[in-house]
Amino acid sequence: MAGKIATRAAYGEALVELAEKYPELVVFDADLANATMTKGFAAKYPERFFDMGIAECNMTGVAAGMAACGYKPFTNTFAIFASGRAWEQVRNSIAYPQLNVKVVGSHGGLSVGEDGATHQGNEDFALMRAIPNMKVVCPCDGHEMKLAVEALLNYEGPAYLRLGRAAVETVTDEIEGYQFELDKAATLADGKDVTVIATGMCVQLALKARAMMETEGISVRVIDMHTIKPLDGEAVKKAALETGCIVTSEEHNIIGGLGGAVAEYLSENCPTPLVRHGVNDEFGRSGTAAAVLEHYGITAEVLCEKIREALTKKK
């Protein structure tokens, strides 16, 4: 493993690294530049950075207007506000007119920790996924995040990008054959008994769970589904046919996010036993990130339980 970095930190670095190459890139924040990690870009490119204050709806609309004039705006705030507070602005001012704005939600999921339920965005995938024209992306580590940011700069259209608060192990840089392509799942480890389809920090949990299950003689395939919409149905179908059961894993409500998307796909295309691992349709609470994640079962141990449950559902 090549060390730990939060995906929000890698994102902040990527903005600075890509600024010269993409002069149309402009960055917006809503008084959270220290947290969303846009501060580096703000310091180096002040004429291309706009702090809109605590006014996410306006920030979203202003970005739409700039996109209509040929710029490539990235808006930044916490996931809950990007996808929730400004949902209708994203829908009507960005997605409906197909404007080239990247809506970036930092601090996605429970790992916000101490700030508690009001700031833990566990519904952003569901909210963004339900909007036509929206792409939804959640990279698992710093290496993948940087590749995703540049891919999104080259993608002409609206997209939602989720960042995580906590430092996570970088895993994708050391996996042989790993390639990042938007809309295409990355199979990080092969396996024949069960497949875990994970996104964001749950990809690392899946790799841990895979090692743990190996001691029980269970072979786990791990798919990194960094693009939740459009879902890579072919990868899901292949996994379903070859391993016979699926577990989804995400730092998100089990309703409407990755688990929902995979359930929809499987039930229509190749009905397969499925278990969804995530936040069980409840609000978060305060605590350290690790404590909160453990409280809600977003751990490798609980994921192993879900894997065993899926195996029992196999015919």
Binding site: N58, G61, G65, M66, A67, P73
Partner: peptide
């Protein structure tokens, strides 16, 4: 309520 924000974005783009 959304149109003025987009107009602000267009005007800001003009300045930039």
């Amino acid at each position: 309520g959304q149109g003025l924000s987009t107009a602000v974005g267009m005007a800001l783009a003009g300045k930039v």
